[in-house]
Design a protein around this nucleic acid. Structure first.
Lengths: 217, 217
DNA sequence: TAGATTGTTAATCGATTAACAATC
DNA sequence: TAGATTGTTAATCGATTAACAATC
């Protein structure tokens, strides 16, 4: 169950959700493959890897499939997430509407700059970084987003890990050193653009493969 | 020269830049490997693939290496980029400081919502979507960012391609259908979080591999 | 020279794909 | 039944890694 496989499953889930909304009830592996941009064999292989089975000749029941995938992907419970860094990216993520329907809730943002602090009723509050630990511990939050400048990122990660956060999405463009029992997923926005620029500048030939880097440790 | 390889090269470049700033003059493949999180063999293999050579027993000259990588990666010229969508993410990207030092300049943002239009002197202007085509053609812009809701993304892509844009970073969480001569790099923020959540919910075991999906066509 | 590091070839590893038997 | 689709095994493919010769 490597990461690429997990990502495909999440994509299947998303596509199925869309198809479900459009009124479809069942689906064949090649329809789903097409929606996600992989091969039908890949879909069936992924499913079999996770013990998902359909009906020979009858395809898959969409609602049952969604149910199953949601279970596998930890969608049963609402996931609370904190952000550290109330700058451009942190703020955009706080306001971003796309998380909610996937069962993800940004519950707080932390920053070192007092001018950013604010308690809000409806929106996400921005608090002092010192409050992070107590907040995270009290609510047993396991997921955090790092949206601080490169220079502060490692220190922020250390704080988060000390507070009990285990999974991190890191937007700072630097390789962070974590502990063995955490997951760090790096998102580097500049790199995303640079990659595209490379292929445009050099003629695109073949651009196949995956982008992101990830770390265990 | 697949995408994963390109990304590694870009990471080498970034790491070298940092090391250069710190005053280092030369470097061995295993130092660089360590900074980026790959093996020394991988570094040398990547370099040899791109015709970069060092000195047997002497390592690599950092400034020459940066120069070489910049050339390969299209860093010689300033890259102008437009954004479509002046919402949370679009706005964050407009204000983001990290692009400039990598030779990337966000030159304009387009939206359909007139309440967002604004001409700015110092910051990025937000204009009507109808102005996109003329603007892009006049300035021969090749790179664009899609930061609109899922529902509008395909249409926006079509506009962009018609205007002559060839490389796209897409933040809408949907698979876009492009033409054969464009590059689409999808960044799905929800997916980035969901992936982390998966590993936390299911125990992280091994999280190795890469995240992103990409498309040629 | 001895030791260390590069550059490259060959081996390994893992993931994707093709083939096909099972079966509805 | 005939045809279509699943589920799985085996083959292929490509990328990473190991090994090592070249050489500074």
């Amino acid at each position: 169950m490597n990461k690429k496989c997990i990502i495909r499953l999440l994509r299947y889930k998303n596509a199925l959700h869309r198809l479900n909304t459009l009124g479809f009830v069942k689906i064949f592996s090649d329809n789903l493959a097409d929606a996600v941009g992989v091969t039908a064999t890949q879909v069936r292989k992924d499913f079999s890897l996770f013990g998902i089975s359909g009906n020979k000749r009858g395809g898959y029941q969409i609602d049952a499939l969604i149910e199953k995938l949601n279970g596998l992907m930890g969608k049963d419970e609402l996931q609370e997430v904190v952000i550290v860094g109330g700058g451009n990216i942190g703020t955009a993520l706080m306001k971003y509407k796309g998380f909610e329907k996937e069962g993800i809730k940004i519950v707080a943002c932390f920053d070192i700059d007092p001018s950013k602090y604010q308690k809000k009723e409806k929106e996400v509050s921005v608090m002092a970084l010192e409050e992070l630990k107590d907040f995270v511990k009290a609510r047993k939050i396991k997921i955090g987003i790092i949206a601080v400048p490169e220079i502060a990122a490692q220190q922020v990660l250390d704080h988060m890990l000390a507070a009990g956060i285990k999974g991190i999405v890191n937007f700072a463009p630097i390789r962070l050193r974590g502990s063995a029992d955490c997951v760090i997923n790096n998102v580097n926005l500049v790199l995303e653009l640079e990659t595209v620029i490379y292929f445009i500048v050099n003629g695109l030939n073949k651009m196949i493969g995956e982008i992101h880097e990830d770390q265990k440790s």
